[in-house]
Design a protein around this nucleic acid. Structure first.
Lengths: 347, 347
DNA sequence: CTGTTAGCGCTTTCAT
DNA sequence: ATGAAAGCGCTAACAG
């Protein structure tokens, strides 16, 4: 393939000039720039990324690290990040951390990013303290999405507030038996979403003077299947909840399925609300706390690019985007049955 | 950061030896190899990808080109491809083709891949003949997923057969008013899925001696929202279908929602079946023709890697993976109402 | 505004 | 089994 020297020769200039012209640097006469790009086009010249990287130290690549890419939230964010990067002619290097069979997450090797990316976008990834240090040591602009880490940039929602919003909604409908379906309590330093959402749930209940019973707190792995299991478990309780707050729409779908399976009517006998604003939540009438998912990805990419562009003003930005409650048909007034029956019995 | 020369010096060998040792090449004594890797680890040495690429011409990167990454099918495939690549220490370079606002797809520039990837995996991307030629001219091992192109490798399902399977299922349940919800009839050479699925639907009907009326053929953009619109349109017909075959589960979800919205009972008054085996189809009781999505991605990655590994035996493989009918509660016997009423009236 | 030139850090013959 | 040395194709001073 054509090399820069071929272009230089054919255009009657030096390689340095070709390099400048191709990159739109100043100090190149318009005439020269034109000639060069014409010749380059004729020869089908494409700058060698590796040579360019080696010589300049810049990769024009942003690593996107995600624990899964199949899940709705991640796919949305990755799509948005990639779109923004590509618009600026940057590459997205996908780095997944698949869960090996033993259940332990594959070790993330930040070192392997050295020289391969100019910046890093880390999606809601439960990192250990050691890994966080290593990412920091890379000294690359880093943006966390869905969690925030001191010293890096981040884009996220206020998980506690989002959870309170959901739980408050249920409380206002008269529910008091409100369960929480979330993730396992991961003990990773930056993975606070599950814990925060649970905290928001508890805070909301506490503020209303409602007790958060332990049986109403079940893990759902943040998957639909996990939500199904969680829903089954909750409905099998001797004293089942009348409402469920799931920390993700996918888990909420699972709970919905569990209700249908058990012949429990939604929302008459059970109210369900999630968090996300999943594409299908509208279709299936799921009440939810909607978060701007794609926008968080786009913002993350923009922060990364701004940092690479030499703009230091955002280097410590921790952007918190707004969520909004979207009540739909999966939530309704608390059933009065039990309360009445109890009242009758006892009185 | 430590360069190869630092390692060489510290280990008391030449850079050539370090290079060989690090890559596990033969002709390196075990002792040397051990020393080298110890020293490298101590120094935190990481091979510079760009230097290595520049010198060797190999990138250890596979480009993954996809029209969207947010859609379920694509996210699944991308995740699987990435996992296989990473397991072999290959990078996945994500290349998306976002649809700009004007509705026209962004031009795909295969040339831009030159020197940036050793192989290409193209996901169900409607390419123009020109683009296909350009990809071919790259002379990189190329694997198409979801479509097949002469001269390249491919992994896909038999779309016609899958559609027939779905339609036959409906016919066997006694339906004759069977609608098809699919994509726009794209006129791209390698994007045959929508057309093939429609062809399968028609073939199935024809084989049963049922007429495929034009009004029963509506586009659904392969999205849930599009499916909703399509479902509404179909149910608004003066003579609505009693069954709908949607070319994707996401569109089928939309049809399901349209039915609920219209108060049409599924499956009593309307049967719905999709294609995919979407994670949520089981949860929502959607009958479907399941395809092994992740496996297609994994196979694609493996084909690419095999080609890069110098194995020429698969260079022209066109793998067709099996689908299977998964009947669930969204499909049931054709309602007898209309037929009976007509019979009574006429007799 | 343009040319010269010294690397960037590794891989790969070719010797030994 | 190991070393010496010539690039890979570009960028970035530095001159001019």
């Amino acid at each position: 393939m054509a090399r820069i020297e071929d272009v230089a020769r054919a255009a009657g200039v030096s390689t340095a000039t070709v390099s400048r012209a191709m990159r739109g640097l100043p100090n190149v006469s318009e005439a020269t720039r034109l000639t060069v790009s014409r010749v380059a086009a004729e020869l089908g010249y494409v700058v060698s990324r590796s040579a360019s990287t080696l010589a300049s130290g810049r990769t024009r690549t942003v690593a996107v690290v995600a624990p899964f890419m199949e899940r709705w939230f991640f796919a949305q964010v990755i799509g948005a990040v990639e779109a923004v990067l590509r618009a600026q002619n940057f590459d997205a290097l996908l780095i997944g951390l698949t869960q090996p069979t033993d259940g332990k997450r594959e070790q993330f090797e930040p070192d392997s990013l050295r020289g391969r990316a100019d910046a890093v976008v880390v999606l809601t990834l439960p990192l250990t303290g050691h890994e966080l240090d290593e990412v920091r040591r890379l000294a690359l602009p880093t943006v966390y999405v869905g969690s925030s880490v001191p010293g890096a940039m981040s884009v996220r929602i206020d998980d506690v507030a989002a959870a309170r919003l959901a739980t408050d909604h249920l409380l206002q409908l008269g529910h008091t038996k409100i369960a929480y379906v979330g993730g396992e309590p991961e003990q990773r330093l930056n993975f606070t979403a599950p814990a925060d959402r649970r905290a928001g749930w508890m805070a909301s209940l506490a503020a209303a003077g409602v007790e958060a019973c332990a049986a109403y707190q079940v893990p759902g792995q943040f998957t639909a299947a996990g939500g199904l299991d969680a829903g089954r478990a909750l409905l099998a309780l001797k004293d089942p909840p009348t409402a469920v707050f799931a920390a993700s729409d996918e888990m909420a779908f699972g709970v919905l399925a569990a209700a249908r399976e058990a012949g429990v009517l939604v929302p008459d006998q059970l109210s369900v609300i999630g968090i996300d604003g999943h594409e299908l939540s509208e279709l299936f009438g799921l009440s939810t706390v909607e978060q701007p998912v794609a926008r968080q990805g786009a913002l993350a990419a923009e922060l990364a690019l701004a940092a690479l562009g030499g703009d230091p003003s955002h280097l410590h930005d921790h952007i918190v985007v707004d969520v909004r409650l979207v009540p739909r048909m999966s939530t309704g007034p608390a059933p009065r049955t039990r309360g009445r029956r109890t009242a009758v019995t006892r009185s």
